[in-house]
Amino acid sequence: MLTEALASMRTGSPSSVRTDGRAPWGLRLPPVAGAGFHVVLHGSCWLVPLDDTPPVPLGPGDVIFVRDGRGHVLADHPSTPAEEALPEQYSDGSPIGSVSLGGDGPRASLLCGNYHLDQGRPHPLVSRLPAIFHLPTRHGRHPELSAAVQLLGAELDNPRIGSDGIVPSLIDSLLLYILRAWLDDQPADTAQGWAAALRDTAVAPALTAIHQAPGTQWTVESLAARSGLSRAAFARRFNVLVGEPPMAYLTRWRMTTAARLLRESDIPLTAVAARTGYGSEFAFAKAFKREFGLAPGGYRRQARAA
């Protein structure tokens, strides 16, 4: 479900920049369309939000995730003045840009970048994440995420044959590792929302069914049967954890799936309608236009022209 939810929002490949700063250094990062991330490869630094949120100290292996791509500052110290810097040209076919700044003090090296996600229609799993969260990977925490960070660092420090293909794949996978680590950090007895829904023995099977087969003619009763709960009890539990009733989420996922098929494939509208549970192209087109404000054909043309 996590993979599918993210795939439904992706609008392109991630862009990344290797940032090397020597104290004193400060880098102001403007807002981006998507979700931002930083991985500390060497040294230490601070992330300074542009609101009243306290600065966050970062050490080797730490990961910071910015859900909505809001602007912020990276610096060797919160009091260091920040500058805006553009990455240098991508060289030697590298998939990573680079920027160097600062003086001649202690060095910090980071991988910074953003995942291009459609924030206009975010999946609730992503939209309900904290605006900024910090994942320390020291002291044995999040071993899989730590391993991915170490692999990235090794490829960037010592590029070899195949690095130009390995690095983008690692960065792409990093998003899943980041979100999985955050979900794993939520205590089972106090988790709420999607963190709880993905673990819930009644709701999780229903979500899996919807994601795997959006074209099935699901009802509250048929989904409740998978949970072992009554129709009313299942509907209440689903609504509390997911944030909307089962049929509303089913419609949301059908429309999300349809939009992805229209953007990424050339299959005819009748096939898109069938895959998303609509008995006719007319019924599908009516539902799609109500949701997106465009007929499916117009949406496909607009997406291809973007």
Rank of each mutant, 00 (worst) to 15 (best):
S94N: 13
S222E: 09
G113N: 05
R231L: 10
G105D: 07
G21M: 05
I267K: 01
A131G: 13
A233L: 09
R107I: 02
E244I: 06
T270N: 08
R260L: 13
P159M: 05
P81C: 04
L262W: 03
A235N: 13
R254V: 07
L135H: 07
A154T: 11
A305M: 12
D20S: 12
A35V: 01
A7I: 02
P55Y: 03
S44C: 07
L183N: 09
R254H: 09
R10M: 11
T251R: 15
E4H: 11
V126N: 00
E84W: 09
T11Q: 15
G43N: 06
T270H: 10
L29M: 12
F238M: 03
G103I: 01
A195W: 03
H72F: 12
D51N: 12
R275M: 14
T53N: 10
R160C: 11
G298N: 14
T208Y: 11
G293N: 04
A204N: 12
L229I: 05
G71S: 14
F238I: 01
V40R: 02
E221Y: 09
R67G: 00
E155M: 07
R263F: 04
G12E: 09
Y249T: 08
P57N: 10
R263S: 12
S8V: 08
I178M: 11
K289E: 15
D92M: 10
G59H: 09
G93R: 08
R260I: 03
S44D: 12
T19A: 15
P57T: 09
G34R: 05
G34W: 06
E244L: 13
R107P: 01
Y115M: 05
R275G: 13
A213I: 09
S13D: 14
T256P: 00
P14Y: 05
T219K: 06
R275L: 15
A259T: 06
L294M: 15
R18N: 05
L261Y: 12
T137C: 12
L156C: 05
V99M: 09
D157Q: 10
H116M: 11
A271V: 15
K289F: 01
R260Q: 13
T190M: 08
P49A: 05
Y278L: 03
T216E: 13
T216Y: 11
R141V: 04
L229N: 06
I166Y: 07
P296S: 10
R226N: 07
L110Y: 04
H42K: 12
T137W: 01
P205T: 06
R10A: 15
Q302G: 07
F234E: 07
I171P: 01
S100A: 14
A154I: 01
G26H: 03
A287G: 02
A285K: 08
A295S: 14
L250S: 05
Y249Q: 12
S227P: 10
A235E: 15
P49Q: 04
V63R: 00
A225N: 12
F37D: 03
D68V: 02
T251E: 15
